[in-house]
Simulated assay, not measured.
Amino acid sequence: MDQYPDAVLFDRDGTLIEDVPYNGDPDKVRPMPGAREVVRVLRANGVRTGVVSNQSGVGRGLLTPAQVDAVNARVEVLLGRFGTWQVCPHAPEDGCPCRKPAPTMVLRACEELGAHPERTFFIGDIEADVRAALAAGVTPILVPTPVTLPEEVDRAPHTAPDLASALAMVL
């Protein structure tokens, strides 16, 4: 890329922080390897950052919105402030228009950050992240974890073994 992207968006669980299913406890938040450095380098280069996250635990009655907010606040204590947080609290069966793989939250994040989708990347760990990015006109980068299915890796247009490698693809 000739110049830096407008923005880099991240999935939260399994991408920025270790995936603790339905986590409502800020004390359980642990950054993924390389997360601190990646967001630091992006910000140091003037690249806007945001988070796009499905949080179906709210819709399933397993978490409260306040618990999600507390975990998100802890993420910012550990990784610094993000320019936007887009969170879908709905369960999959709710049929909402915002839940990934729908592009709604990715497009909202771009709008809030003043970023052009075609100059934005979305880094995530599952196919819903990739599909949401593609539907929004954003470039996806899949960083697989043990929960990522092999066929999701095969279908992803761009993959990286870790966050540092994903950073090298965007800068």
Score class of each variant (00 low, 15 high):
residue 33 P to E: 15
residue 153 V to R: 12
residue 78 L to A: 04
residue 114 G to F: 11
residue 29 V to M: 01
residue 37 E to T: 14
residue 162 D to K: 01
residue 57 G to H: 08
residue 28 K to S: 13
residue 131 R to M: 12
residue 124 G to S: 00
residue 78 L to K: 02
residue 132 A to P: 02
residue 108 R to W: 13
residue 123 I to P: 05
residue 55 Q to I: 06
residue 57 G to N: 11
residue 5 P to A: 00
residue 123 I to Y: 08
residue 109 A to F: 03
residue 162 D to W: 06
residue 71 V to K: 00
residue 141 I to A: 04
residue 75 V to C: 02
residue 75 V to Y: 06
residue 144 P to H: 07
residue 94 D to P: 05
residue 165 S to C: 11
residue 90 H to W: 11
residue 115 A to H: 02
residue 131 R to C: 00
residue 79 L to P: 08
residue 3 Q to Y: 12
residue 36 R to W: 08
residue 47 V to R: 02
residue 80 G to E: 09
residue 31 P to M: 08
residue 88 C to L: 10
residue 87 V to H: 05
residue 104 T to M: 11
residue 168 A to F: 06
residue 53 S to I: 03
residue 141 I to E: 00
residue 69 D to Y: 03
residue 171 L to G: 11
residue 21 P to Q: 04
residue 50 G to L: 06
residue 56 S to A: 15
residue 16 L to R: 07
residue 126 I to T: 13
residue 157 P to H: 05
residue 75 V to N: 03
residue 93 E to D: 15
residue 41 V to I: 15
residue 98 C to I: 04
residue 170 V to P: 10
residue 165 S to K: 13
residue 166 A to K: 02
residue 151 E to M: 09
residue 29 V to C: 03
residue 38 V to D: 00
residue 47 V to L: 05
residue 70 A to D: 12
residue 105 M to K: 01
residue 59 G to N: 10
residue 171 L to H: 08
residue 55 Q to G: 07
residue 151 E to R: 13
residue 129 D to L: 05
residue 107 L to E: 13
residue 40 R to M: 10
residue 80 G to L: 08
residue 162 D to Y: 04
